[in-house]
Simulated scan of single mutants.
Amino acid sequence: MSHILDRPAWNALRTAHATLAEGNERARRYPPSIVPFAAPADDTAESLEALENLPAADEAMALVEANPIAIPPGLMVVSEGKLVQMIAERPYQQISDSRIEPLTEADAAEMLALATLTKPGPFTLRAQSLGTFWGVKTDGRLVAMAGQRMRQPGFAELSGLCTHPDFRGRGLGTLLFRFVAGEISARNETAYLHAYATNAPAISLYKAMGFRLRSEMNLTIVTPRQSA
């Protein structure tokens, strides 16, 4: 029996993030201005055709699933990768720290700049549409942040965790990790996250922080196939 997190994008877009979804009951995606994730309802021809019809000619979509990813003929693969999906082994205590503050739309450009520099994963100016983000500022400058991305019933993805290189080694990433995990636990939801399978240092850190490997995941970036 499949787990709700085996197909995280589809199960988010049909539940907690249904109001953001573009598409129909056969295939859905997030608005590309928010995040590139998309998914078909299943691997039937009807669903794959619906997925194929979602992007404009110049748009890319990211597909993430535990099982091998079926690609419709009208889409071509731009890149592929392996991820690990990790899940909290226990609830986290809600904590408070005077350095942490909720981020707002006024912080969006600085958040994007920090994410562009540190590359925690897909990030846009509208990332806050998915969930709350928090950050630490020094002299008014955003130096670390973390927040929430995809959500499914009972689960929330911890995402966007990054620290400016000039401020690493001060425990800010660990602090924000524990803070966001605590906020998720306070809603009686379980925190989970994704990391590249090749990122051994991050995986080791997340294990030390109380997360365990739940599943290996496939990541495929696709774009419409150009007609001759």
Rank of each mutant, 00 (worst) to 15 (best):
Ser98Thr: 14
Arg99Val: 06
Ile100Leu: 08
Pro102Asn: 10
Leu103His: 02
Leu103Lys: 02
Thr104Ile: 09
Glu105Ile: 11
Glu105Pro: 01
Asp107Gln: 09
Glu110Ala: 14
Glu110Cys: 05
Glu110Asp: 15
Leu112Thr: 05
Leu114Gly: 08
Leu114Val: 02
Leu114Ile: 00
Leu114Asp: 10
Thr116Asn: 14
Thr116Glu: 15
Thr118Pro: 03
Lys119Trp: 06
Gly121Ile: 10
Phe123Arg: 09
Phe123Thr: 06
Leu125Gly: 01
Arg126Val: 01
Ala127Arg: 15
Gln128Ala: 02
Ser129Ala: 14
Gly131Pro: 01
Gly131Glu: 02
Gly135Leu: 00
Val136Glu: 10
Val136Gly: 03
Thr138Gln: 15
Thr138Glu: 15
Asp139Thr: 12
Gly140Glu: 07
Arg141Phe: 01
Arg141Ser: 05
Met145Lys: 14
Met145Phe: 03
Ala146Trp: 00
Ala146Tyr: 00
Gln148Phe: 08
Gln148Ser: 04
Met150Ser: 13
Arg151Glu: 05
Arg151Cys: 04
Arg151Pro: 00
Gln152Asp: 10
Gly154Thr: 13
Gly154Met: 10
Gly154Arg: 03
Phe155Glu: 10
Phe155Gly: 10
Phe155Cys: 10
Ala156Arg: 14
Glu157Thr: 06
Leu158Tyr: 04
Gly160Cys: 01
His164Val: 07
Pro165Gly: 11
Pro165Asn: 05
Asp166Thr: 09
Arg168Lys: 05
Gly169Asn: 02
Arg170Ala: 14
Gly171Arg: 05
Leu172Glu: 07
Leu172Thr: 07
Thr174Ile: 03
Thr174Asp: 15
Leu175Met: 13
Phe177Trp: 09
Phe177Glu: 07
Arg178Phe: 09
Ala181Ser: 15
Ala181Leu: 09
Ala181Val: 04
Gly182Ser: 08
Ile184Pro: 00
Ile184Gln: 03
Ile184Ala: 04
Ala186Trp: 11
Arg187Glu: 11
Asn188Pro: 01
Asn188Leu: 07
Glu189Pro: 04
Glu189Leu: 09
Tyr192Glu: 07
Leu193His: 12
Ala195Ser: 15
Ala195Trp: 03
Tyr196Gln: 13
Ala197Cys: 04
Thr198Gly: 11
Thr198Met: 13
Asn199Glu: 04
Ala200Gln: 12
Ala200Glu: 15
Ala200Met: 10
Ala200Leu: 14
Pro201Ser: 12
Pro201Arg: 02
Ala202Cys: 10
Ile203Met: 14
Ser204Cys: 10
Ser204Ala: 15
Ser204Glu: 10
Leu205Tyr: 11
Lys207Phe: 05
Lys207His: 15
Phe211Ala: 09
Leu213Ser: 09
Leu213Trp: 11
Arg214Asp: 12
Arg214Phe: 09
Ser215Glu: 15
Ser215Leu: 06
